[in-house]
Amino acid sequence: MEIKKILGNKSILIGGGIFVLIVVCAVFAPLITKYAPTEIDVNRMLQTPSAAHWFGTDAYGRDIFSRVVYGARVSLIISISVAAFSGVIGCVIGMFAGYYKRAESIIMCIMDGLMALPSLLLAMAIVAVLGNGMFNMILALTISNIPRIVRTVRATVISVKNLDYVEAARSMGASDARIMWRYIFPECISPLIVRLTMTMAFTILEEASLTFLGLGLSPETPCWGIILSEAKKYIRTSPYFLLIPGAVVVAVVYGINTLGDGLRDLLDPKLNK
């Protein structure tokens, strides 16, 4: 019954299909690539796509297909963990800020302060203080994403918490925790999913920007941000170098967004008929 519902939803089928394909590629990267992503070969620099090198080769003769597939590992780990951490933390803070009036002014003051800084600048500052590395990058991007999620969740909580059915729950004797979890949180899920799929998409790009500025991972790491920023130099001479990995990123972002839309519809009983 439930599985039938999920399969009947086109958005979930398409978005989920793309997402699963990428995850499978990332997990089985050594099996589907012929070359190591860091294998340098000056004899095959900047080749156009061919049967041997499906996506061509880059300026150091590395196989772009291998780099994109291995890059999926890094990019997915970062974007999924940033979305998950900032989603959970942002949701909890946002629920408190929206529900308890006293907490609201303090929390929103801090969040507005964080929002006032451009998120990239904030992430740069955090990485600069903590040092390079995947964990610090995830931490930095999580912190810079939290304020947006807090705002989204808080706005929904405020619009829901004075509705009659919440008041009815209170008059039944429900505790604050139960009201938040059973009555208010379900209403936050759809804006949260939309926000988080956007966060995942943006994170891939932000991670690319940080790396491009030399504040992310080391340049030989195969990750989408690095591939794209290296390819930028060759856009006139070898456009496929940029376009093919770029298309992969676009496809993933599209897949994640579509999956998010599908999940949102699935959770809404009204649209789910």
Partner: peptide, 19 residues
């Protein structure tokens, strides 16, 4: 006490959890 004293609200469209 709340178990013993219940309220029926005015608007039946707003007082039931939609989900």
């Amino acid at each position: 006490l709340r178990k013993d004293m219940q309220v029926v609200f005015q608007d039946p469209f707003a007082s039931l959890h939609p989900k």
